[in-house]
């Protein structure tokens, strides 16, 4: 699954921070997942649990969902991404590469495909806590 690749990236980034901050043990990792990418939380959680190194063995992963806000550059309209407006194949394409949203989504007000994703595009590492 594609979530595995993301989980691997999250673990690698979190490990790097843990080393930099001299954490002996990581207790908490907070991850923010934008709605646009439609990451399956269960799979992501499972992948994280399988991939985590020993210094993460007691770590709790907090996954928070972030809404996806879009803003039209042509008319200035702002709106929220809604997955249920898309068919299965389109939703899946956006899941793999969120930028292809520009191929399928248009401004609901003026029809322009020139919009920006102002919030909630992908996956972010928000916070990591542990003991030195």
């Amino acid at each position: 699954m594609h979530e595995w690749a993301l989980a691997e990236a999250i673990i690698a980034a979190a490990e790097k921070i843990a080393v930099k901050e001299k954490l002996r043990e990581v207790k908490e990792v907070t991850i923010k997942v934008g709605e646009l990418q439609q990451v399956e939380e269960d799979i992501l959680r499972f992948a994280l649990s399988q991939l985590k190194p020993s210094s993460f063995k007691n770590a709790e992963f907090h996954i928070t969902k972030a809404r996806t806000a879009l803003r039209c550059r042509t008319c200035g309209n702002s709106w929220l991404f809604r997955r249920n407006k898309l068919d299965e194949a389109t939703a899946e394409a956006i899941h793999f590469v969120p930028e292809v949203a520009h191929s399928y989504i248009k401004c609901p007000k003026c029809g322009s495909p020139d919009f920006e994703i102002t919030e909630g595009r992908g996956v972010w590492l928000e916070n990591i806590k542990g003991v030195r």
């Binding site: 394409a93 956006i94 969120p98 930028e99 292809v100 520009h102 495909p113």
Partner: peptide, 28 residues
């Protein structure tokens, strides 16, 4: 290729979107 996901649709991307799509594909 991105065509697997964009199909025949036009994909208008600005610089930051190009970077994001590039990072996404290289990382997965």
């Amino acid at each position: 290729t991105l065509v697997y996901y964009s199909g025949d649709q036009a994909t208008p991307l600005r610089g930051a979107d190009v970077s994001n799509a590039l990072i996404e594909l290289l990382s997965v």
